[in-house]
Every structure is written in structure tokens, then in C-alpha cells.
Design a protein around this nucleic acid. Structure first.
Lengths: 380, 380
DNA sequence: TGCGCTGGCTTAAGCGCTTAAGTACAGTGA
DNA sequence: TCACTGTACTTAAGCGCTTAAGCCAGCGCA
């Protein structure tokens, strides 16, 4: 805590005394102005201003039973981007106070340089969805709480206890933890296995997206050899891989059973795998990646291998993050309407998303994505 | 509110009854595990899990006197970007519930297209600072509240009542409103007139940044005719303009007294002004803009006027937002270490920013910016 | 046997609001 | 004149936690 002496926060009691009224009148001055005579109201508000009174949201929340806040929780997603590049990890660990003292100017650092050089860390998928969520909440005049943590009971419960509604980027198996809370507050999952767990869902039509990519590669580019890069640790990943295989089968091509493993943390299996493909002379014509981040990483590996994109290998992504526009070559991908999805989640939580589906089941909002053709497939 | 029947949130009382202990033991099970025998603790936690108990943050905050949340408030900054392009305004107004019902797929919209086409709306300066703030809070394990509203007493007080510390992008004159609250919670301003108002400050060295730009234009490019584009409605704008004039004077050039007015909302004075300059044959060799957003807007106007950047007119920005990398030509600018600034603000609020400056005055963290030379000045 | 001590639990008093119910009083109609 | 109404305000009972203080075995020790 800052050492500067802080006076106790003024309360309704202080304001009431200052204005010579009861605490109820103070409350009414803010919440039910029409119940007071103008004179009294003004007297109270003036007293409040004089004292620097800020109503305690905790007390209000307790009394009313609702906090008014909508929450967006990411399961340690920050971690994922903090994990690379290395300098950022250093910066995160290195949290002993930097010199903020005195009039000295804080110098530009190596970390700042990396952020400038590598916009790949921001904004990611989560950030754009989050922006939509915040934007909608702003329109509705509601504050937003952003939190991030593990998917342990405690972490989720803590967040759940702070908000009137919670939108979540689920991790594996978090739906189970969450279902405990969905009876007391509404919960929106951004993508997750379909299940009757009472949660609302906001997701993208993975099949349509992948189908469009595959059709483009098969029909426009006549590609006949493929590999899928990604992880099957999420429902999105599974759906995309499933449609990838379906499209191949339909084209009379026998798809592989396992994707090239693209782990974000830990050992770089993707690089190993791609090296192996080159070594054995079985590098396919196109790498269809499960996400843009995977695709960008794959392009890095290909560059290291001396392979050109798209001349030697075509690469496609999924999501449509900004970094895909900045890469060389720019990434052919499928874009999700991330902002719209974030906004939909906020509306569902606020209860302004229209009537529930007739049968009383939760919302299941599926958004159509759009194919974005750029240079990494050989177009443009 | 969602119509689905919701059961009352379970409380300590419910858990206590379920576990056969007192409510104090329930509290201890979460907050002071070492005070209970392992058997009791487990019994309580199991009961809590069974009931889906999430401790009420309101009650906790009320009892402890602190919410644990750090806040970031932007004075209707969302508005600024929501104001253009036009379709986005439409989308915002048009908030009657879209069809989220049934299994229908929500189609891709024109608005989604615009967001894809124009990354100029995101991420802006605020977003990158916000990201730093959120990142640091995540590291410290603290939730973040993002709010946005007017700078009226009520709006600010409402936000102030929800958090233990508040970082703010100040609007004109908001420091006055804020100073009422700085005696009860710490407040950080991102840039503002220097004043002894008790607020902490996190800002960039505008003079150094502008000096580097001017030196580059004067010495490397031999530019001798200039105009400044921007508004003087913020301390940042004033400092930048002041250094611009100082650099010109030092080079023996007489600077103009008033900048080209670059209003974001309202009538497009900048376009008018630039048109006038062309009409009168007095378009200078370089337009030095107060922000990247101004610079990008200026480049649009120049394009409409049939002028090429940088061949006919050199344009420079300030801030270093991502959109400046994506413009054609890419923007020469000065980059602020936005993420670092956001993180510093969070640390100051959390009290982990080291000891206060010796004399007990608030922090005044001034960050060094970095010149980023790209194509819009004729380099590269 | 009586004593103090300690670990493990409970009791109970707030924290600062909201709001249903109650009071006081001026005005109204019969 | 008095009951009646409506307006303007106050009283007081929570809301669900935290935590200081209290209680009560059960223990070691003289």
C-alpha cells in the first residue's frame, strides 16, 4: 500500500451528519432523487461533494444482492503470451520495483523494443473478444471485471463471487467446475463441447470456416497433399480437424489421423515434426493450421528450414488476428467476428439478448466466420 | 435478467449448516486454513463444493474495507473510436437484440468486414496501456475493473467506490473531480498538467520524443517548412507543440502559432485546413502530427488531395500504435512504451512500486520514448 | 488434584449500504 | 372540526462476510 496517509473513506453516515439528514436520505439522494425535495437533495449532494464521498460498491452490492459488474475470465491465457519471447518472461519475473523514484526518466528497454518489433503478442483472439465485451458493457453503462487465473475451484469461485454474470474462455474440463455456479449466476462459454450443462455458449461455426479453407485450397489451388497443424485439446481444435478430414475424404484424399502437434508451451514438437517431414521428403504442399498463432509459428519454422511460403509450402490459419496481416507473406485465414462475439456474450449476461430459446435452454450463439484470402496460399 | 430460474446464491450460513460448523469456521477454511484441523477444513471445503458456494466479494469487501480490485477508467474514450467509421455507430445504436435464439447461425455482417478492413480502431494507445495494466495485475493476482464514463462526479465516484486504486486517462479538468478521492484511494493519471494535486503520474517524455522527430526531419531530410497537426486540449498535445516550436526556433525557422486543428469528433477541420493550404499553395514539406491517429487521418486527406506521402508531403506521428505499421506508407513516429506504462501504473496502485519519493510526494514516472523511422518521412 | 496453556472452535459485533415500514405534518374535503 | 391523503423524511432490519474475543476440552506439570 502506498505509505501516504489516507483518511478513512467517508460513508453515508458522514454525509448524513454533514448535511443534517438521515442516512436514508443520503441513499435516496443518489438512488431515488425523486423521493426527496430538491432542496434536501442538493444539500446532500453538496455535502457528498465536499467530503469526497464515493458510495461503497461493496456495501451496495451486499445490500442489493448484486454487484452490477459483468466479468470476463481467462484461464491463465495471459501466461500463454507471456511465455514468448523470452525477454518478456524475464521482465515478468523481474518484478522487484524498477526505479520509479525521483524525477529520473525511465529508459526505453529491450522489452519495449520487442513489443514494437513483434506485434504477434497483441492483440490476440482473446483481446479482440474482450474488446467487444467491454464495448458492449460500456454501451450498457456497466463496469467490467477482467480476471485471469487457474481453473481451480477457488479461483473461479472468487471471480464468480464478484460479478453478476461471467463470460469465460474455458480450459479443458473447466465446464465441470463452472456448472456449480451456473445455478446462481449466468455463465457464457466461448466455445466448448456441446453439453447440457446450463451454460450459455458463444462460438464460431468451425465447420463452415474449415470447409471454406479446404474448398479454396482444393479447388482454386489444386492442392492434393496436406497436413494439419494444431492441438486437439479444445473443442474448436477438434471440430476444425474433423472438418479438415471430412473435406479431404470427400475429395478422395486419405487424411492423416493425427495432426502435427503445435504445443504453445513446452518443447517445440511442431518444429521437430516439420523437420522430420522435410528429412523424409514428405513435406506436403499445404499446412492447414488450427489457429493463426500456429500458422505464424509454422511459417517461422519453414523459414528456418529454407522453405518459401507459398512457393514451396502453402500455409493457412484460423481466427483472423491482426498479426496475420503483418506477417510476410500475409496469412490466408478464416476470420471470426470476435468483437461481435464478445458483445453477444455481454448482452446475454446482461439479459438484453432477447428472450431465451423457447424451451428454456441456454443460448447457443453460433457465428459465421469469413474466409480471408491473402498471400500465404499463393493468392494475391 | 435471464429468465431461467436461479436459486439463491449459497452463503456461509448454508455451507456452515451443511458442514455442521459455525460460519466462522467456513470463513477460516478459506482465509486461514491453518487455524482449522485438517478434518474440519476438508469437511467445509467439500460442503462448499457441493453447494457451489462462491464467497460474496461484496460482503468480503465490506467486512475488510477493501475490494482487492484495481481499476482503470477511461473517460468515454470508447466513444472516440465508436465514432468512426459510421457503420460502427449504427451497430452501436442498433442494439435491439439480434437473433440469438434457436440454432440459427448468426451471419457475418458489414460491421465485421469493416473491423477486418480497418485495424485503425484497435488497438489504440489506450488499449496497449490497458493491456500492460491488466498484465501486471494478473502477475500480482489481482482482478481488474475496466470502466468508462463521463468525468462527472457521480460517474467517477461510482468507479472510485469499487476499487482500491484507480488509474485514469484524464480528460480536461478531471483532475479537479479526482482530487476529492485521492485522499481515500491512490490515483494514477496517465499524463496531465503537472500540479500538486496528490495524484501519481505516469507519462512519456514528450519533449524528448518531439525533439528526436524534429532533429530527424531537420538534419536527415533537410526539411525547412513545417506544419503541426493536432489539438492543444491535453497536456501531451501542448508539450509536443511547445517542443515542436522550440526545435523550429532553434533551427532559425519561425513556427506558426496555432496548429492545424485535428478534432476527432465533429466537423473535419483538419481536412478544411489542409485543403486551404493546398489551395493557397502553402502546403509545407512536412506535417508533424500530435498523434498517430491524427497522422493517419492526415494521410487520408492528403491522398484525397492527390498528394503523395512522402514524395510531396512528409508525415510523422506520435505514440507508435500498431495501425502506423499497417498504413501505406508506414508511419514514422515516436513510440511510447505503453505496456510498461500500464504496468507501472498497476504497481504504483498496488503499492509495489518501491518506496515513495523521499519527500512523500506522489510518483511522477516519466518514460523515455523511442524514435521509429519508417517510410512516411522518406526513409526506408 | 489443581493449574495454566494451547489448539480448535464458536459467539457476536460490526462493515456501509438499501429499503420496507413507520412517523410527522401540511393540505383537503365533508 | 376531524378523518383522510399525500409528501418528505426517518427508523431499523437486514445483506454475507471478517475477526477480536471468548469458551472449552485435553494436556503437561507441580
Amino acid at each position: 500500500m502506498t505509505e501516504r496517509p489516507r483518511t478513512r473513506r467517508p460513508t453515508v453516515y458522514d454525509v448524513a451528519q454533514e448535511a443534517g439528514v438521515s442516512i436514508a436520505s443520503v441513499s435516496f439522494a443518489f438512488r431515488r432523487p425523486e423521493q426527496l425535495s430538491e432542496a434536501t437533495r442538493e444539500r446532500v449532494l453538496a455535502a457528498a461533494r465536499r467530503l469526497g464521498y464515493a458510495p461503497s460498491a461493496s456495501a451496495r452490492g451486499l445490500a442489493r444482492g448484486r454487484t452490477g459488474i459483468l466479468g470476463l475470465h481467462a484461464f491463465d491465457l495471459m501466461l500463454e503470451r507471456a511465455h514468448e519471447p523470452a525477454a518478456r518472461v524475464r521482465a515478468l519475473r523481474d518484478l522487484h520495483s524498477p526505479d520509479l523514484e525521483g524525477p529520473r526518466i525511465i529508459p526505453w528497454t529491450e522489452t519495449d523494443d520487442e513489443l514494437l518489433a513483434d506485434p504477434r503478442a497483441f492483440p490476440l483472439y482473446v483481446d479482440e473478444v474482450q474488446r467487444g465485451f467491454a464495448l458492449e458493457c460500456w454501451v450498457m453503462g456497466r463496469p467490467v471485471m477482467i480476471s485471469s487465473g487457474s481453473d481451480s475451484d477457488v479461483s473461479v469461485a472468487d471471480t464468480a463471487g464478484r460479478v453478476d454474470g461471467l463470460a469465460i474462455f474455458p480450459s479443458e474440463g473447466s465446464a465441470a467446475v463452472l456448472s456449480r455456479f451456473s445455478s446462481s449466476i449466468p455463465i457464457v462459454l466461448f466455445s466448448a463441447t456441446p453439453a447440457a450443462d446450463g451454460h450459455h455458449r458463444v462460438r464460431v461455426d468451425n465447420s463452415q470456416g474449415m470447409r471454406e479453407i479446404m474448398t479454396h485450397l482444393l479447388d482454386e489451388h489444386g492442392v492434393r497433399s496436406f497436413a494439419f497443424v494444431g492441438r486437439l485439446d479444445s473443442w474448436d481444435g477438434e471440430e476444425r480437424f474433423a472438418q479438415y478430414r471430412a473435406s479431404l475424404s470427400q475429395a478422395g484424399i486419405v487424411p492423416e489421423d493425427e495432426p502435427v502437434d503445435a504445443t504453445v508451451r513446452g518443447p517445440d514438437r511442431m518444429a521437430e515434426h516439420l523437420h522430420a517431414l522435410v528429412a523424409s521428403g514428405r513435406m506436403p504442399r499445404a499446412l492447414v493450421c488450427s489457429t493463426d498463432q500456429n500458422a505464424l509459428a509454422a511459417m517461422d519454422v519453414l523459414r528456418d528450414l529454407g522453405l518459401r511460403v507459398p512457393e514451396d509450402v502453402i500455409v493457412t490459419g484460423f481466427d483472423g488476428i491482426l498479426a496475420g496481416r503483418l506477417s510476410a507473406p500475409a496469412l490466408t485465414t478464416v476470420r471470426q467476428p470476435m468483437e461481435a462475439m464478445g458483445r453477444a456474450a455481454a448482452r446475454i449476461l446482461a439479459g438484453t439478448a432477447g428472450p431465451l430459446p423457447g424451451d428454456g435452454s441456454p443460448f447457443d450463439a453460433v457465428f459465421a466466420p469469413a474466409l480471408v484470402v491473402r498471400a500465404s496460399c499463393g493468392c494475391g
